[in-house]
């Protein structure tokens, strides 16, 4: 297989990792909102962890992005 088109395919595949992060973020904020609805007084404490968690999940997606860039460099 020629390397350039293959690298484009690879980059696209690497970007699919974003889907997982999207699912994760959705779960997390959904659960967080559920928790806040049940226990509004805990919002202050919990939202801190929500944002930290969001940053972690987002970083997972960005690993895919970095992979895509690496493939781009090799192409």
């Amino acid at each position: 297989m020629e390397s350039l088109p293959a690298s484009f395919i690879g980059m696209g595949l690497a970007a699919t990792g974003l889907g997982g992060a999207g699912i994760g973020l959705g779960y997390m904020f959904g659960k967080a909102i559920e928790a806040f609805a049940r226990q509004p007084s805990a919002e202050g404490q919990l939202s801190k962890y929500v944002w930290i968690g969001a940053a972690f999940v987002e970083a997972i997606a960005l690993y895919g992005l970095v992979l895509a860039f690496i493939i781009m460099g090799k192409g």
Binding site: V66, F69, I70, M72, G73, K74
Partner: peptide, 9 residues
């Protein structure tokens, strides 16, 4: 450089 991946690498 732009065509050969990220400048960071």
């Amino acid at each position: 450089a732009a065509s050969s991946g990220l400048p960071q690498f």
